[in-house]
């Protein structure tokens, strides 16, 4: 039992309804420690809603989330953060007036389970800024950064909370191919440090090369699961992406 990788996150029969709209239906999957799982799907497939439920922003209509062996379905996002779950947002959420370093320090200071001193938080933050190559910008107010830099800052700040599981929502959206390449190298480096990752993207160029396993979501349901190579050849995934839908999928 101990030799096998531990389960980091387990999602069972998760569903979400907004009024008459079924946004997620019976979502179940699990994630082992050190694994990178990518969730793909067209816009509106429910990827962000799934993230919001896992990270405690939105209560599910049914089902449960188990994180590191504890049922966390009704935990608040700040508690989950201190418990080792971090995320980034589709639209970067930075502290605009704080400097880049102060942004990351906030994560180190408040997000860890142990409470580091201000000096320790600063040292850890500098190290992370080096990792995302923002060290030269440490005194710049975050609002002056470009989109790519804000993404990287958000990533460094999330890492500063010392997460076991990191969720990256649409992290490649709006980035150039070159930037995506940098980002995927970074993600692969993080994994070697034992981090478990859950990514979403509606384009495939970031998620394909880094993920161990992919989950395809369409209209709130898992339509396919497997290795990136398998999934890309799956006709259902292809039709979901191209918007060509068979009769069975119509008005699902």
């Amino acid at each position: 039992m101990d030799n096998r990788p531990q389960i980091c996150l387990k999602v069972s029969r998760l569903s979400k309804r907004y009024g008459g709209q079924q946004v997620l239906r019976d979502i179940s999957f699990s994630l082992q420690e050190g694994e990178i799982l990518g969730i793909i799907g067209p816009n509106g497939a429910g990827k962000t809603t799934l993230f919001n439920i896992i990270t405690g922003w939105v209560p599910p209509s049914g089902g449960e989330v188990v994180f590191l062996g504890e049922k966390t379905t009704d935990w608040t996002p700040d508690r989950l953060c201190r418990g080792g779950m971090a995320r980034t947002f589709q639209i970067p959420q930075v502290f605009p007036e704080m400097s880049v370093l102060e942004n990351v320090m906030t994560g180190a200071w408040f997000g860890q389970q142990s409470r580091p001193s201000a000096a320790q938080a600063r040292d850890q933050s500098r190290e992370l800024l080096g990792l995302v190559e923002l060290a030269a910008k440490e005194a710049t107010p975050a609002r002056e950064l470009s989109l790519m830099q804000q993404r990287l800052l958000e990533l460094a700040r999330a890492l500063a909370t010392r997460p076991k599981l990191l969720l990256l929502d649409e992290v490649a959206a709006g980035l150039s191919l070159k930037a995506v390449k940098c980002l995927s190298n970074l993600i692969l480096r993080l994994r070697t440090q034992g981090l478990t990752l859950l990514l979403t993207d509606h384009l495939l160029h970031l998620i394909m090369p880094v993920s161990d396993r992919l989950l395809a979501l369409d209209q709130g349901e898992i339509i396919a699961e497997g290795s990136p190579q398998d999934l890309i050849q799956n006709p259902e995934v292809e039709s979901a992406y191209l918007g060509v839908r068979g009769a069975a999928g119509e008005e699902g």
Partner: peptide, 24 residues
């Protein structure tokens, strides 16, 4: 203080502050 820093984070971006483990 640390508390003052937390308040500053809350003031600047509540979503991010929550995400950083601050009890807003």
């Amino acid at each position: 203080s640390r508390w003052g820093w937390a308040l500053r984070a809350v003031r600047e971006n509540e979503t991010a502050a929550t995400m950083m483990g601050i009890r807003v």
